[in-house]
Amino acid sequence: MTLSHVHLLLNHVPTVGTAIAIALLVISLIRRSDELKRVSLEVFFVIALLTLPAYTTGLAAQIQIQNRPGVSDVMIEAHEDAAIWAFAFMQLTGGFAWFALWKRRRGGLARGSMLAIVLLSALTMMMSARTANLGGEIRHPEILVGGEDVAAIEAALATNPPMITANQIGLLVTDRTWLWPAFESLHFIAMCLIFGVVLIANLRLLGLFKVWSFPAVHRLLPWAALGFAINMITGMMFMTGSPGMYADNTSFLYKLGCLMIAGLSLLYTTAFEGPWWVGAGQDAPRRVKLVGAAAIASWLGVMYFGRMLPFIGNAF
């Protein structure tokens, strides 16, 4: 399996998934169901998580398909330019959804976050739909309507260029000598922040530090989420600046896989019942311990495969 396969597997998730999450949120508001609202927030988080490989593997698909007869590079770039904004708004929506879940678990209401999620998810839906349509037009002429052809679409795209393109963001990284080392430093500092909190929270679930209840360590989770956000931004900047280093890199594929498990474990420890009810001096149930072990192992995997990008893979 290559990263291009992963892109084909996941490229409908942001559009269809966001639509499902919005539908769940609307139904929860109509039915005044707190449980359904929680589920919609969880779906927003999972969709944001899956959008990460959906976006990054697109670069691998681009390298595979560009320069082939009948494939327009202009349309591929338009798809990429739309995707980077859809990705950013999707991550913002997922971030607010995570914060609302964390606050609700602690008994708060997070009204501001809910409002932000409603607005951001609507924007994300529009951006994802446009991205999906532009992506489809690259290789599916059957969706061209009203006698459109590739030349007409290229001309239309040229008359209405985006304010900031993915290429410009890439050049921002590669043209400034200070940016890569600064972001690399921040990437490692944020990694320490994430892993520190992950270790404390999940070692507690595995039976260490029993003097603390899980809700006591649960309040630290936003620090891990902040680290995650920093690494998402810095990591995406590296990838946009030097896509060739990641697009066909086996180690990056494994890193993405570990990141998905790590993200899901963060959702579990943030929002689910199992860990929350582990009080001071108590032992966590076996299934909760299993998630704790998976969380630590997956973050170790993220770090290992990240470090091995140049050795197992072809980066740098």
Partner: peptide
């Protein structure tokens, strides 16, 4: 030398901003 100074400044400023955001979020914990 100039490069190291810029990198250090960017990292320090970002760390301070992130710490401030973290402290602000922590206020929602109780």
């Amino acid at each position: 030398m100039q490069l190291a100074a810029i990198v250090t400044a960017v990292v320090l400023v970002t760390v301070v901003i992130v710490a401030a955001i973290g402290v602000a979020i922590d206020r929602h914990a109780d």
